[in-house]
Design a protein around this nucleic acid. Structure first.
Lengths: 229, 229
DNA sequence: TATTTGAATTATGAATGCATAATTCGTTTT
DNA sequence: AAAACGAATTATGCATTCATAATTCAAATA
């Protein structure tokens, strides 16, 4: 079987997924926390998690350290880990930051996204409007997130995406909660019309302002429905 | 010795500093990396660090995981840790984000800082100008950082401070490097005059713009002097 | 009976040990 | 001599063990 000099480098083998255990654990726990499977304030004893995942404490503890540095859990000396509970103050801190980050992403995206990519966002937008009309909140929520993410990714700034995602993880549950508010829902759709229009016009400064306002309004809605401390 | 009912709660004992080892190690390593004691790209073998700090591998590895999640080092499966090397692309990604964060902080600070706090910034500013005139770059650099930090803290948004600090850690060395550029130095002083004026006038929107521009100019200067990949 | 005390239990912090992947370096082969 | 192969070495990933702090809970005391 003849092979040319560089053949091994050219063959794209499926990457043998061998994430380290702590990485895999961090990802799983992150999902569990963000999705609410581990409710806020809950203690997360190492023993229990080790048994559930079938691993030893070492990689689990490494994962917990990472999640703590992401702000998803809090570690108390000799007292274990608890899922970080969101306070009103947290939300009031995080939303403006996400607003600033999304504003920046919008500004960059207007300059850097291809027409095809913008068209793809428009398609997501239309689907989102459809699920709004159908009253399908879960799908609406997913498409909404997809749009914001597409603009973020469209900025071409991976660090920006990562930073935004980290903050978004902390407040994911709160955002979803506030979703059952019909007035706000209508308003959000209207804002998204403006977002799409600004993006299609490649009006960066305007999109930045709209996104920032959008997040501010979202915060107000979340705060109205927030039942935490 | 009579004690009233709540006396134990009222006595402010010096907090017995018992950070866990991984926390202490993370802090030390973070400093070493940020200050350049561990040069970028350098391998950091666990064994060596364990001996240097006199600890076992377990807490050290936990600290490495945290630093990796902060972007200060990169972990390669079964191949250990290396101090993350900054690329031009990294700088081009991080500076705009820091610009957006500082812009937000400035906007908030104009609304929330007390007159006394603003006066303190003015004092820092004057000292900074003095060290500029004296050609004392290290002191200038410290005061410069102190001013930016004061505005960040003045925003009253701890998450904002933490997020900014994380990004700042990654690019600390590059920022310092670019400091030996007399033209840029003069320009930076001029920009800082504008910053102080906007803050004293509590003109949030203007301060936001100035800070964003300031960071953009800083990036340009850093890029001119950047010798990395 | 409520509060306090302290032994027993449990959970976490850190060190050590073991398995395996990666690297090194001497040997072989062309 | 250069490249390639493979055994020996080294470093890392994970599990286990040991030490110690925190918690629990029953007994003692006011």
């Amino acid at each position: 079987m003849p092979m040319d000099a560089n053949s091994t480098a050219d063959v794209m083998v499926a990457p043998i997924s061998r994430r380290s255990l702590h990485e895999e654990l961090a990802a799983r726990l992150r999902d569990m926390i963000v999705e609410g499977a581990l409710p806020a304030g809950r203690k997360v004893p190492e023993r229990e998690l080790c048994e559930r995942f079938g691993v030893s404490r070492t990689p689990l503890r490494e994962a917990l350290k990472v999640l703590a540095s992401e702000g998803l859990i809090s570690l108390n000396q000799n007292r274990g880990a608890t899922v970080a509970a969101l306070t009103r103050a947290d939300l009031e801190e995080v939303f403006p930051i996400m607003g600033a980050l999304e504003a920046l992403s919008g500004s960059l995206a207007c300059a850097r996204m291809s027409d095809a990519e913008i068209e793809a966002v428009a398609k997501l937008h239309d689907q989102m409007v459809e699920s709004f009309k159908a009253g399908d909140r879960p799908t609406y929520f997913k498409l909404n997130q997809a749009i914001h993410r597409a603009i973020l990714v469209g900025s071409g700034n991976e660090t920006l995406v990562a930073t935004h995602q980290m903050l978004a993880g902390r407040i994911h549950r709160a955002r979803y909660m506030a979703n059952d508010d019909s007035d706000r829902w209508r308003a959000a759709i209207a804002e998204h019309e403006l977002i799409l229009a600004a993006l299609q016009n490649r009006d960066g400064p305007r999109l930045a302002v709209i996104l920032s306002d959008h997040l501010r309004n979202k915060l107000a809605s979340v705060m109205r429905h927030f039942s935490g401390e």
